[in-house]
Simulated scan of single mutants.
Amino acid sequence: MDLEHFVCSLPKAELHVHIEGTLEPEMMFELARRNGVALPWKSVEETRAAYAFTDLQSFLDLYYAGAAALIHERDFFELALAYFERAHADGVVHAELFFDPQTHTARGVAFATVVDGLERACAEAQVRWGISSRLILCFLRHLSEDEGFATLEQALPQLARIHGVGLDSSERGHPPAKFARLFARCRELGLHIVAHAGEEGPPAYIVDALDVLKVERIDHGVRCAEDPALVERLVREQVALTVCPLSNVKLCVFPDLAQHNLKRLLEAGLKVTINSDDPAYFGGYIARNFIDTARALGLSRAQLKRIARNSLEASFVPESLRTPWLLRLDAMPA
């Protein structure tokens, strides 16, 4: 079995994908035309040419501009269904979708419109491809905690359809502790807790996310390697890191994949997973992240199986769902 086929055959969970970041330029232009939205670019080609990011913020500026094309429930449904079709081809059996309601409500799109479209796609993906899914509401960290509370208030009528909350957007200058009260309230509501930390921000942000927000997973987390005591803690507590290799290169966290620290983290005993982050912008969905990383770092098939197992074990699903996936995984040759 060649590497591509092996990777796509691995049952895996995607735990770090922003659904707005799966908006391919072709769909962006189609939705913009349908909805009468003016984009900053004249063509799909010009849009792709703009994908030369120097850091996280340069990407976010483009990301928010493209999201303006998403207005109606149908738009969010079509966006998510297109992602699920790709995820199925890549061997994803479970996906936990991040979505950014503040990006849309700030433009006058109703919170329920976003969730209605995404949830309908989740249901359709279960029927068509047997993919299980969860929705994770992400708060934008460049905004205030009070604005986060206002978003949470909007979310309350939809809470039965939302599985967890996260923290994303500009990391520098916005430590997790900025949102301590908001995440305490989310924990009281019984929501799962995750947060982006240690991508551009320092290892101290990872510690903050663990101790102040009390997260169950760290999104990115690659800068933990700068703090040996933190690495020891993450290994001891088996906190999953949802690493996004192609994203890390595209946003200049690492100069190239060959210098990524994923393999070192894995061999140190950390619960590393591989994910696509914003695949429309960063050059590949989850299988491409697995394949390119394996080739660049010389990952063995046993290590790829370990990474897939980590993703299934770290997913927010009951054992009744997880066990059959793990049995399938274990039956695959290494």
Results as ranks from 00 to 15, higher is better:
residue 270 L to E: 01
residue 174 H to W: 04
residue 150 A to T: 11
residue 296 A to L: 12
residue 163 H to C: 08
residue 248 N to S: 14
residue 231 V to F: 09
residue 303 Q to L: 02
residue 301 R to W: 13
residue 285 Y to N: 08
residue 267 E to L: 15
residue 6 F to N: 01
residue 297 L to Q: 15
residue 290 F to E: 05
residue 82 A to D: 15
residue 177 A to H: 14
residue 307 I to C: 06
residue 46 E to G: 09
residue 53 F to P: 05
residue 171 E to R: 08
residue 158 Q to E: 14
residue 211 D to H: 11
residue 141 R to Q: 02
residue 117 G to L: 08
residue 169 S to W: 03
residue 78 E to I: 04
residue 56 L to D: 00
residue 248 N to R: 07
residue 185 R to S: 03
residue 11 P to Q: 02
residue 291 I to W: 06
residue 241 L to M: 08
residue 295 R to A: 07
residue 321 L to V: 13
residue 151 T to M: 15
residue 91 G to A: 07
residue 233 R to K: 15
residue 149 F to Q: 01
residue 92 V to F: 05
residue 217 R to A: 00
residue 129 W to G: 02
residue 323 T to H: 13
residue 298 G to D: 04
residue 192 H to K: 12
residue 238 Q to K: 15
residue 221 G to F: 14
residue 113 T to K: 01
residue 294 A to W: 09
residue 280 A to D: 04
residue 135 L to D: 03
residue 180 A to V: 09
residue 135 L to G: 01
residue 279 P to N: 00
residue 281 Y to K: 00
residue 307 I to W: 03
residue 276 S to F: 10
residue 94 H to Y: 15
residue 217 R to I: 00
residue 90 D to Q: 03
residue 269 G to K: 10
residue 177 A to W: 10
residue 54 T to K: 13
residue 305 K to E: 05
residue 113 T to M: 00
residue 160 A to T: 12
residue 301 R to N: 06
residue 330 D to I: 03
residue 319 E to H: 12
residue 81 L to T: 02
residue 276 S to A: 15
residue 131 I to N: 01
residue 58 S to F: 04
residue 275 N to D: 15
residue 118 L to W: 03
residue 317 V to K: 02
residue 289 N to Y: 08
residue 176 P to T: 00
residue 2 D to Q: 14
residue 169 S to H: 05
residue 95 A to P: 10
residue 189 L to P: 12
residue 298 G to R: 01
residue 156 L to V: 11
residue 293 T to C: 07
residue 13 A to D: 02
